[in-house]
């Protein structure tokens, strides 16, 4: 099941990349410094959206482990952290490249959204690498679940940053009261790409949760075998 979802996601993002490069309308030179580089948008925004889903999963999974000691929630923590790392890195990378093209600088330390998102991605790097460096156990799970839980405070901050502060990063183009500033074809490609990234990340998380489940079962069987042999 996870494989099917994953392949559907791959197909979708592949198609969205082709649409972004070949079909999506060009933008005006008056609106953008680098009209060609603007097409990064069609993966950058959906990757960020997928990252929010992943960090949400990380938050729920972390809370579920810490407060309910749920094995399923721990698997969600693992899946969410890995997905958050991958999509966070994609967003940061594409954002830096687009920033270099559009703003003349890849990074702006005064921009709240960039920096909170960067911190979230670093948190994901820390949680994934840190967890992989330790044997599985209650201490390991509690430590990294706590980081996953408290780090989540950055997510709403990142989301509302462009609404509250005047910063370099552009504000929302969809889902605003005035209907947004995006034209219909661009919106279509963006929507398709967002759906594809959602399917991809759900597929990846399902695969990861299944693998973690199998690893835990294997560990239990090995512990039993330790006692028997």
């Amino acid at each position: 099941m996870a494989s099917a979802v994953l392949f559907a996601g791959f197909g979708g993002i592949g198609a969205s990349m082709l649409l972004a490069l070949l079909w999506a309308p060009s933008v005006s030179i008056d609106a953008f410094e680098s009209p060609a580089a603007q097409r990064i948008f069609y993966w950058h925004v959906p990757a960020a959206w997928a990252a929010f889903i992943a960090f949400g999963a990380l938050f729920i999974g972390s809370g579920g482990w810490l407060f309910k000691r749920s094995e399923r929630m721990w698997r969600l923590h693992v899946a969410g952290s890995e997905a958050g790392l991958a999509t966070g890195l994609m967003t940061v990378w594409s954002g830096c490249v687009w920033g270099a093209a559009e703003w003349g600088t890849p990074w702006d330390w005064t921009d709240v959204r960039l920096n909170t998102f960067g911190l979230l991605t670093l948190l994901a790097v820390y949680v994934v690498l840190g967890r992989n460096s330790q044997p599985d156990g209650v201490e390991t799970r509690d430590t990294f679940a706590a980081f996953g839980l408290y780090g989540f405070v950055l997510v709403p901050l990142t989301y509302i940053a462009t609404r509250i502060w005047t910063i370099r990063h552009p504000g929302p183009v969809v889902g605003t009261d005035d209907g947004g500033s995006i034209n219909s074809e661009m919106g279509l490609v963006l929507f398709f790409s967002a759906i594809s990234f959602t399917v991809l990340i759900v597929g990846h998380m399902m695969a990861s949760m299944r693998l973690t489940d199998l690893e835990q079962k294997l560990e239990r069987l090995q512990s039993q075998t330790d006692k028997v042999v």
Partner: peptide
Amino acid sequence: MEGMGYLAVAYFGMLMAIALWTYTV
């Protein structure tokens, strides 16, 4: 670097991230 160059670098990096992510699975 021209706009197309930035575009290529951005998508290449993202594709590498997806490839690496899939490789870890």
